[in-house]
Design a protein around this nucleic acid. Structure first.
Lengths: 224, 224
DNA sequence: TAAAATTCTTGACTTAAGTTAAGAAATTAT
DNA sequence: ATAATTTCTTAACTTAAGTCAAGAATTTTA
């Protein structure tokens, strides 16, 4: 196994010199798959020619993340947006009474951060935790703002991503207004069976807004 | 009282010919206050010179809306974004079991539509109902898309608004994960006392995710 | 202003989820 | 491989909210 640095700081330069993605992946610093996944994801929202894609990717850095590692810690301001090409993350925070609440899961591929913290550049309520070992790309706040200023298409990407993040949030919200905890669990099972299997029940429970004991009972009720 | 047409279709032309806001308001077609409120609101997000503001406003139309009138009907695709300079609206939909759920309230000033319908141009789940008589401005989907293409700053406005709408939605969502219905009611009372007074209890109840009977009891518990 | 419609409250009872506690099962770390 | 930790289940009991129903209060409308 090749030992890798936490972040490959020369990444920007390499891309700007138009060395190929293939060369980068040969260096084993960032996988070809990660870059392909990134480009494919971005291209779902905006059309990028090679020049724009180079400009975009050259603002990203690369990082290896261990299972359970925090991508963002509560009380710190989110100054990065991460791109997940694989794996998934958990959002959680601590309530006044000390109990921990899992508020969200985000699955690859996608851009993730605490948008509420990132957008207004104020301390985050939530922690973001890697649920599995993963490689991520990330861009810093000030670099993204500069891209927004200089590249209309990247601003569009930002708009489209914000819109989609909103739609996801609204769906989650509506599940609380429309469905019982039991309904929400059954829906989750049907929609994301692979994940439900791999997520500890007490995380799922608090995501559904109930206790682990209640979810355990719901699960047993459903079996019969 | 002056009789007004439902929508003043010549509005675009007047603005494009650089006739003044004052003239418009003298015609009693759209109030000076509405336009001022619109410009002030937009300027919280982007800096508009007169040229850009004219371009922007010339794409909007004006409409008088009666209390209880629907700005958007469920099953139809939202093809407009409205600007509310006054008043507030209610979002509601009907569940499979026939019960009506109030999912949201939006208060002026602000841009409102069913973003989930508008963004992906698919049929809306929700109805949007005016809670009071009001004047609104609105822009059509295709006109906004054209503005996004031609005016980077308007695209930025779109991004910033989508971001803020997301933040609002996330707050609402977190209130379900963090707080009891009673907590949520007390918070609402503290934050928006004026509105709580004017919104029928059964609307508030379903917004909080509980029945009207439960909210009535919560309210009486709180008094003691 | 009187009738109609809507909004709000209260009571009796049911139900689903919370709480506390204990221990079993499974996974992770040494 | 074993100990430590985490995850999951079950039981007994409590509590908050749901349901159904009836009627009072308020607002709207004709």
């Amino acid at each position: 196994m090749v030992k890798l640095p936490d972040a490959f700081v020369n990444f920007k330069v390499v891309i700007n010199n138009h060395l190929s993605i293939e060369l980068l992946s040969m260096n084993d610093r960032i996988s070809e798959n990660t870059l392909k996944s990134f480009r494919a994801f971005v291209n779902k929202f905006i059309l990028t020619d090679d020049k724009l894609f180079d400009t975009l990717i050259s603002n990203f850095e690369y990082k290896k993340v261990a299972r359970k590692e925090l991508l963002l810690e509560a009380s710190k301001t989110a100054n990065k947006i991460f791109f997940l090409s694989e794996g998934f993350v958990r959002f959680y925070h601590t309530k006044n009474d000390g109990t921990e609440v899992t508020s969200d899961f985000y699955f690859a591929p996608g851009f993730i951060t605490s948008f509420t913290s990132f957008i207004d550049q104020k301390p985050s309520i939530v922690n973001i935790q890697a649920m599995v070992k993963m490689d991520v790309l990330f861009i810093k706040y000030k670099d993204l703002m500069a891209l927004y200023d200089n590249e209309h298409k990247v601003e569009r990407l930002g708009r489209l991503l914000a819109e989609q993040v909103f739609i996801t949030s609204e769906k989650h919200l509506l599940s609380f207004l429309n469905d019982t905890p039991q309904d929400r669990y059954l829906w989750l099972m049907k929609e994301y069976p692979e994940y439900v299997k791999n997520i500890p029940l007490h995380y799922l429970a608090s995501y559904l807004g109930i206790t682990a004991e209640s979810l355990s009972r719901i699960r047993n009720r459903s079996v019969k």
